[in-house]
Amino acid sequence: MLTKRIIPCLDVKEGRTVKGVNFENIRDAGDPVELGSFYAQQGADELVFLDITATNEKRKTLRELVSRVARHINIPFTVGGGISSVEDVVALLQNGADKISVNTSAFKSPQLINELAKEFGSQCVVLAIDTRQEADGNWYVYLNGGRVKTEADCFRWAKEGVDRGAGEILLTSMNHDGTKKGFAVDITLQLASLSVPVIASGGGGTMEHFTDVFRQGKADAALAASIFHYKEIGIPALKQYLQQQGIVVRWESNENFIC
C-alpha cells in the first residue's frame, strides 16, 4: 500500500541550514550535508532542500551543495529556490536533484510550469505555494519567501498549476509555519481534492499534528523542519507512532538488509 510520507526540509541560507518562525527570526540549524544523510538513515521518505535566499537575493541555488547532499542520500531529493528556467533545472538534475520546486517564478510566469513539465515530466515538477489566511477568511498566495502578498486565491492557483503540469503541490501555511501548533488542516483538505499529491508544510509540532494532517487534511505527505533539526521529534519515533495510529508509513523495525 502506498504510504504517507514524512519529509524533513532543509531551508538553506549561505550554505547553512536555518529555520525561522512565521518566516522571520531565522537561526542556524546545522550543516545540510550532515543533516540530509542523517535523515535518510533515520527513515525519512524524501528530502526537500530550499535555498531560501535565492529568490530574494537573485542568486541561483547552490548547485555544489546540492551535489554534496545528493551523493549522501538514497531517498528522493527535491530542490527549490530561485529556479526560473529549463537551464536552471538541467543544472540541478545534473547535480543529483530528482525533483525541483518552483514558487515565485512560476506565479509570475505560469508558462514555466508547462515548459518544465514538458521537458522533464510532471513527476519532476513540484509547485510550492506559500499561503496566508487573512481576516476575510480567504487564503492568499504569497511570493518571495512570504514577503509579497498577491490577490490570488490559493486553491485556484494550485488548480491552475496542476492543469499546467505540476506533479505535486508543496503547501506551506504562513499562519502555521514555525508555530508548532499544528498544520493547516482545512486548506490542506481543500487542495487534497486535486489530482496530484499534496505535501502539507508549516506547523508540525507534535506527533498528533501529523495524524491530524494525514487523517483530517488527507495530505499525502507532511513536511517539517525545526522539530527534526532540533531533535524534538525523531523520525523513527514519529513513524512508529503513526503506524500505531493505523496510518500506513514506511517503517521497518526489523530491517535486515546488508547496508
Binding site: 500500500m1 502506498l2 504510504t3 510520507r5 521518505d45 510532471s122 513527476q123 506533479g167 505535486e168 489530482s195 496530484v196 499529491p197 499525502d220 505527505a221 514506511r250 535486515n256 538488509f257 546488508i258
Partner: peptide, 23 residues
C-alpha cells in the same frame, strides 16, 4: 487514487537473485 502514484509502496512475490536479501 491519485495518478501518478508517487511515493513508497511495498513489493511482494519476489523472485530471482535480483531480490536476494530483500524481504
Amino acid at each position: 487514487l491519485k495518478v501518478p502514484q508517487i511515493g513508497w509502496n511495498n513489493i511482494f512475490h519476489l523472485k530471482t537473485p535480483l531480490f536476494r536479501g530483500v524481504h
